[in-house]
């Protein structure tokens, strides 16, 4: 046998030791077979979470719709859950959600995309490497801190200029939410813009176009689906944001378009009702789930759309 030739070298014969150990290996053989199944079980926890979310939200929401007709819920403009004759129209909440989201996007959209243009097209490597992480700090600040900032600083600031604005209003949290979303849009749009191949830019530069013209006529059109995808994700984030609006926009369930007034969003409603310790089984308890299911569908659609757009963008390059 080939193995016996080097016995002269050393007392240790590794080959024999390995052969020896191998006999005891049945246990590790078992591990080897068991591991993939075990990992599959762990991986399915994420699936279970999704299933859990869907089942919890929708079974309880269905209970709710047995009491309050689904039609009434989605067309009702009056929300009076605590009243003697409660009414459960979700439109005030959807309205509040959309208005705060709209205000936020009015800030985050333009500022985010202009930051992205600067970072991707104008800034030098060194400047970008300083500015980008700084901007991302904004995304790491907990939303409760933004809520505090909106309530104790931005609202008083707005009121000192426009005294007719309420102590709680939708404008201030909307603006602050916008600031919070800037880094998200800036960073995702920048990724999209910087992955536009340089050859396309060079084509425009060679014709004597300025950077500005190249950006607007070549880079942005080429990166459009990526940029839109970042907007959609920003919207989804704003729709789901909770603490800023809960703190700074109060809890009046007005159905109005006056941004100086207090309005409630879907998320803030969930906080209010669940903190109020609604007894399980009551209509108001079930309404939590109907609102949450609505919110869930809103954000899910947005996320699917965003992913579709960004995949389309990736396919193009």
């Amino acid at each position: 046998m080939a193995g016996n030739s080097d016995t002269n070298k050393n007392a240790v014969n590794v080959r024999e030791m390995i052969a020896e150990k191998k006999k005891k290996k049945n246990l590790s053989n078992f591990t080897e077979k068991f591991i993939p199944t075990f990992l599959l079980l762990i991986a399915s926890i994420s699936l279970l979470t999704t299933v859990g979310i869907i089942i919890t939200l929708f079974t309880e929401a269905i209970e709710f719709f047995k009491i309050v007709p689904i039609w009434e819920f989605f067309t009702g403009t009056v929300l009076r859950p605590m009243s003697q004759n409660p009414e459960f129209g979700v439109l005030p909440l959807i309205n509040g959600t959309l208005i705060s989201t709209f205000i936020a996007m009015l800030v985050a959209g333009p500022v985010g995309i202009m930051s992205a243009i600067y970072l991707s097209e104008y800034a030098s490597d060194r400047v970008r490497r300083v500015l980008k992480p700084l901007l991302e700090i904004l995304a790491g600040i907990p939303t409760i801190v933004y809520g505090f900032f909106a309530f104790t600083f931005v609202t008083p600031l707005i009121r000192s200029i426009f005294p007719e604005v309420g102590a709680t209003n939708i404008l201030s949290p909307g603006l602050v939410m916008g600031v919070m979303i800037i880094p998200m849009i800036a960073s995702l749009s920048e990724d999209a813009m910087s992955s536009v191949p340089n050859s396309m830019r060079e084509g425009a530069f060679a014709l004597g176009a300025t950077k500005l013209e190249t950006t607007f006529k070549v880079v942005i059109p080429a990166a459009l689906s990526g940029i839109i995808s970042s907007f959609v994700l920003g919207i989804s984030r704003a729709i789901g944001e909770t603490m800023i609006v809960t703190i700074a926009s109060g809890s009046s369930k007005n159905f109005t378009f006056d941004i100086t007034q207090s309005m409630q969003t879907m998320t803030a409603y969930i906080v209010e009702v669940s903190s109020g310790d609604a007894p399980a089984g009551s209509t108001i308890y079930y309404s939590l789930y109907a609102v949450a299911a609505t919110l869930f569908i809103f954000t899910l659609l947005m996320n699917i759309l965003a992913r579709y757009l960004s995949r389309k963008f990736r396919e193009e390059y």
Partner: peptide
């Protein structure tokens, strides 16, 4: 992408 409040529920 699910809002954190939904996880709360």
């Amino acid at each position: 992408g699910v809002p954190s409040i939904v996880y709360g529920l």
